[in-house]
Design a protein around this nucleic acid. Sequence first.
DNA 1: CGAAAGATCCCCT
DNA 2: GGGGATCTTTCGA
Length: 207
Amino acid sequence: MTIENFFAKATTDIITQNLLGHELLYQSPKGVVGGLIVEAESYMGIKDSAAHSFQGRRSPSNEALYGPAGTIYIYSIYGHYMFDIATQAAGEPQGILIRALQPTQGEKIMEQNRHLNGYNLTNGPGKLMAALGINSFALNQQLLSQSPLSVSPQRKKEPRRIIAAPRVNVSAGAWQNRPLRFYVAGNPYVSGTAKRSWELSTWGWLN
DNA sequence: CGAAAGATCCCCT
DNA sequence: GGGGATCTTTCGA
């Protein structure tokens, strides 16, 4: 099973839920860094009012969304870099925004990249990219399997419970309240969650 | 060419 | 929980 086979086999919202617990790794110049995916959002393509490809919008900056499943889509907003993966066949511009990681590799390097430590290291889409040390568009439009970024083809850990909620900072449009944000319940690296909701014995995993 | 919006972050109360 | 920083992209004149 390759990571490309993992995608394009279901609807993007199902793929997003199945992606939780997979390990994202980056072969960075300073060493291997990465962690388990604990939070992600689905963007459902031309009919989704919050998607960059809404109504078929297409330009050099979002071209990666139109690539085959497993294509890396990097964009920037407010001076921060974000990491998406195209999930469907070429020409069907749907994708997943990776929003938070639980560090498993190179935590020291990530702390140096971020100049801080603790749960704030990777609990947001811009934060995790800064922690990995990615601050350019160099990997945009590359295939995951042919780049220094990789996602494990299967789960490393099973979420005990997955919560679905409206997407973060999607505040207008017909799809603004759709529950397309998915995260591991109780994991302290999920962005914007309250301390009292954290499960610090299991971090939300079954194994 | 200027302006405004935006899938965010950090620091302060 | 709120406001300012920051900067790329897009759209309208």
